[in-house]
């Protein structure tokens, strides 16, 4: 057997798998350009008879206000939970207090709870603290349930940094926040990118928390998208156009920042 595998042969499985990954995308895009009477299961692979933007216009009319809600929700939610995660990760990796090794897994366990199970106490709690119905309550929810994964990521990232750096700063008399600010923060960008993208996607795609915690005027786009379907008749072409619009921001993030996301992950940020 030759030492070098035939390079061209490697592309064969790659292309087959690529097709597998692109099939659903093809269906979404093709369907979203069709008129309603062209939409049928039997003709799902056919190209639309013409480029028809009506579906996007219809979907946009219904979704636009909620798109803005989603942005108002996702940006602070991602930033705040990343900032918290970074500070937690720093303390739990490099500025340990007695019991830190118990606190870390205890925080982490929050990642694994099935969210459907906490809806009722969550709604009641949000009512009690008067944050029910609006975006701040939903932001708070995303920030809190984001703490475990962001803390984990940053802690693992910081754990790989030589402790000598921190010790040196300590000896120089730097306090905790100074050390964090001067030593760790400047090298944290890869981890921030990973965590921000992760949280952005999670909050953007969330449906469950949004539908029970917000009023109609504050609904993010996922809930509005869900509402485009009635219980009687589903206009799949408009629905697909809506799904495409709703997924576009996260898709763009992955297309343009995916490299950095991967780079961050390769740098060890998300290696459990």
């Amino acid at each position: 057997m030759s030492l070098r595998l035939n390079r061209l042969l490697l592309y064969l499985p790659l292309i087959v798998i690529t097709l597998f990954f692109l099939l659903p995308l093809y269906v979404v895009v093709v369907t979203s350009f069709k008129s309603f009477d062209e939409v049928s299961l039997q003709r799902m692979w056919q190209l639309p008879s013409g480029i028809n933007f009506d579906n996007f216009r219809l979907a946009w009319e219904q979704l636009a206000p909620h798109l803005w809600n989603s942005i108002k929700l996702v940006v602070p939610a991602a930033l705040l939970s990343s900032a918290l995660g970074s500070l937690n990760g720093f303390v739990l990796a490099k500025w340990k207090f007695p019991g830190a090794d118990i606190v870390f897994p205890a925080l982490l366990f929050g990642m694994f709870i099935p969210y459907q199970a906490v809806l009722i106490p969550l709604v009641q709690f949000m009512r009690t603290i008067d944050l029910y119905g609006g975006l701040p309550g939903l932001i708070l929810t995303h920030v809190i349930y984001g703490i475990p994964i962001t803390t984990l990521t940053f802690r693992n990232f910081y754990a790989a940094i030589p402790s000598e750096l921190i010790e040196a700063a300590r000896i120089d008399g730097a306090g905790m926040l100074q050390t964090y600010w001067n030593i760790l923060l400047p090298i944290s960008i890869p981890a921030f990118v990973v965590v921000l993208i992760w949280q952005f996607t999670a909050a953007w795609n969330d449906f469950l928390f949004a539908v029970v915690l917000t009023n109609p005027s504050n609904w993010p786009i996922t809930v509005a998208l869900n509402n485009m379907a009635g219980s009687q008749i589903i206009q799949w072409n408009v629905q697909m156009a809506g799904a495409f619009l709703a997924a576009l921001p996260t898709l763009l993030v992955y297309i343009f920042l995916g490299r950095y996301f991967l780079r961050g992950m390769l740098a060890g940020a998300l290696k459990g």
Partner: peptide
């Protein structure tokens, strides 16, 4: 003092997770 500072830094997260994860699990 350092340890205390570190603990205080993480405390808000501990409280939040305490309520939103363990409190709610307890209720369930």
């Amino acid at each position: 003092r350092d340890a205390l500072l570190g603990f205080l830094m993480v405390l808000p997260s501990i409280i939040a997770i305490g309520i939103f994860v363990y409190g709610f699990i307890g209720w369930t």
